[in-house]
Lab assay of single mutants.
Amino acid sequence: SEEELIEKAEKLRKEFEFIWNGIRFIIRENADEIRRFEELLKE
């Protein structure tokens, strides 16, 4: 039914948001290391 689809979509959206926030947190935490690594690659 349509309601089930909406519920599934909402659940997926929440899971995606949770994963995305996790990725963003990891990137933020490691931003300095990532930048340093990029500098090494440029040399």
Rank of each mutant, 00 (worst) to 15 (best):
I6K: 06
A9H: 08
W20V: 02
E2R: 12
I6E: 06
L40M: 07
L5I: 07
E15H: 13
E38A: 14
E15Y: 15
E33P: 08
I26C: 14
I23D: 00
E7Y: 07
K8D: 07
E33C: 15
E7T: 11
L5Q: 05
E38W: 14
I27R: 01
E15Q: 12
I27W: 11
E39T: 08
R24P: 00
L40K: 04
R36E: 02
E2M: 13
S1H: 06
K42Q: 09
R35E: 04
F18C: 14
W20F: 02
N30K: 08
E3K: 10
R13C: 14
G22L: 15
E2N: 08
I34F: 07
R36F: 11
E15D: 06
E17I: 14
I19F: 11
I23F: 05
E3H: 11
N21T: 09
K8H: 10
E7R: 11
F37G: 02
K14Y: 08
E17P: 00
R28F: 07
E4Q: 07
I34P: 01
E43N: 12
K14F: 13
L5P: 03
F37M: 05
N21L: 14
E17Q: 12
F16I: 05
R24I: 12
F37L: 09
L41S: 02
F16Q: 01
G22S: 13
E29W: 15
L5T: 06
S1K: 07
E38M: 14
K11I: 09
E10A: 10
N21R: 13
R28L: 06
R36L: 10
R24H: 01
E43Y: 13
F16K: 01
I6C: 13
L5D: 05
L41P: 01
I19H: 03
F37C: 14
R36P: 02
E3D: 10
F16V: 04
E29R: 12
R13P: 06
I27C: 14
E17G: 09
E17D: 02
E33M: 14
E7A: 11
K14G: 03
R28N: 05
R36I: 09
E29A: 14
E17Y: 11
R35I: 06
E29G: 15
D32G: 08
F37D: 00
R13Y: 12
K42V: 03
R36N: 03
I23E: 01
L5C: 13
S1L: 08
I6G: 03
F25E: 04
L5N: 05
R24F: 13
D32T: 08
N21I: 14
A31R: 06
N30Q: 12
E2C: 15
